[in-house]
């Protein structure tokens, strides 16, 4: 816990660099491309359309039991936060390796490279969110006070994301196998998280997997609050919060232990 506070303080001290690194991340990505930042919106939109066709039209997966939510919206509400999570972790895993010349030469808190990657993805997420808001208006989804739950859920998701990102970034520096392993984990993880199907069709004997998987809890909570206008399942969310903090502690500890040797092995 103390380590988390200390790291947080040193990142605050270097916030100018954090800001510059984040804007480098964003500016450099779509240089020399015509559509530029529009790709951030286009990408999940195309994903959503194809998945809706496959899972709703062909496989006819139901949305939520008693509601009339269109499948596209049902899917998109879960897909966006999932994309935020998966792109953050996979890009973070590469963040240290890609900045090898910097790490070898100049001192600064290395976690800045990971945090700036996540912030850049968060900005992408915000852009992609505009489409979701247009959907909301179009489908006349009622807006309730329960929408405010999104903020603590997203924060918990970010704690979990940061923990995993720090771990994989440091591990990938030692063994490049990690990035391939991670791609595999993420693609399987997608299917054990209720993104293309609703959580309540999961058989009871498998429910525990979904209780322990924080991403499943987050995705479900977004749907309950945003689409259902209800408050989320607080017990599950509490477990997810604890799991997230444990993940962050372990990730940061692993990262800090190896930080001194990054320049030697990168």
């Amino acid at each position: 816990m103390l380590a988390i506070v200390q790291e947080f303080q040193s990142v605050i001290k270097w916030r100018e660099l954090l800001w510059q690194m984040t804007s480098r991340e964003i500016k450099a990505r779509y240089k020399q491309s015509i559509l530029g930042y529009f790709w951030v919106i286009l990408n999940p939109l195309a994903q959503m359309l194809v998945m809706s066709f496959a899972f709703s039209v062909i496989l006819r997966i139901p949305t939520n039991s008693a509601s009339h939510i269109p499948y596209t919206l049902f899917l998109y509400t879960a897909l966006l936060p999932w994309n935020l999570f998966s792109t953050s972790v996979t890009s973070s895993a590469m963040s240290l390796v890609n900045s090898a010349p910097l790490i070898r030469k100049i001192y600064f808190p290395r976690s800045i490279l990971v945090i700036s990657t996540i912030i850049a993805k968060l900005i992408d997420f915000a852009f992609a969110l505009t489409v979701l808001i247009i959907f909301f208006i179009f489908f006349k989804i009622p807006i309730t006070l329960n929408l405010l739950w999104v903020i603590p859920i997203l924060l918990t998701q970010l704690i979990f994301t940061l923990g995993l990102s720090l771990f994989f970034a440091a591990a990938n520096l030692i063994y490049r196998d990690i990035q391939y392993l991670l791609a595999l984990i993420i693609s399987l993880w997608f299917y054990i998280t209720p993104i293309v199907y609703p959580a309540d069709i999961v058989p009871n004997r498998f429910k525990f997997i979904f209780q322990l998987n924080p991403m499943s809890v987050f995705v479900n909570a977004y749907r309950q609050t945003v689409l259902g206008g209800k408050s989320p399942d607080l017990f599950s969310l509490f477990i997810a919060l604890i799991v997230s903090f444990i993940t962050l502690s372990v990730g940061l500890l692993y990262f800090k232990q190896r930080e001194n040797t990054f320049a030697d092995i990168v």
Partner: peptide, 14 residues
């Protein structure tokens, strides 16, 4: 101020 391997902190696209 380290002047080691100049441009370590540069990004070519920027």
């Amino acid at each position: 101020s380290p002047l080691i391997e100049l441009g370590a902190g540069f990004h070519p696209e920027l």
